[in-house]
Write a protein that binds this DNA or RNA. Sequence first.
DNA 1: GCCAACGTTGGC
DNA 2: GCCAACGTTGGC
Length: 154
Amino acid sequence: MAYWLMKSEPDEVSIDDVLAAPARTVAWFGVRNYQARNFMRDAMREGDLVLFYHSSCAEPGIAGIVQVCSPAYPDATQFDPASPYHDPKATPEQPRWIGVDVRALRKTALLSLKELRTVPALAGMRLLAKGSRLSVMPVEPHEWHAIEALLGQP
DNA sequence: GCCAACGTTGGC
DNA sequence: GCCAACGTTGGC
């Protein structure tokens, strides 16, 4: 089992939105970066645990924990001309973008980006690297455990 | 295959 | 709204 971090703008989909969704499950769509896509396609598996990160908001940080609950499958928005995520070069026969379903496990007290930067064990975290802007990225087990300790018990 | 121009991300 | 960093595009 692997650990991940996925970014979402809470104005679009917040951890509360995932918790409120049917079966606490939403489709993760709109990833349009090859590196992020390849992580989902090649390395992500059902059951993997994911830090749910709120980005582009007043207080960015980790807001909850979700779990991958489907295999990767084509992201329907790429075929929809009305969608902002439309990709004219993608066809159902040759899809370019994929997503997964995630189920909310719990909401946490917000662990802010500012706090994350102060934790020595997290100094090497990809999220914290200069210029890092991947929306889907792996989390090392030791990083996961350090964060879990900071998040406290459910 | 290089690289300049452009677009996007995301913290501040 | 600004802007640094990075990714993508497309002419050559």
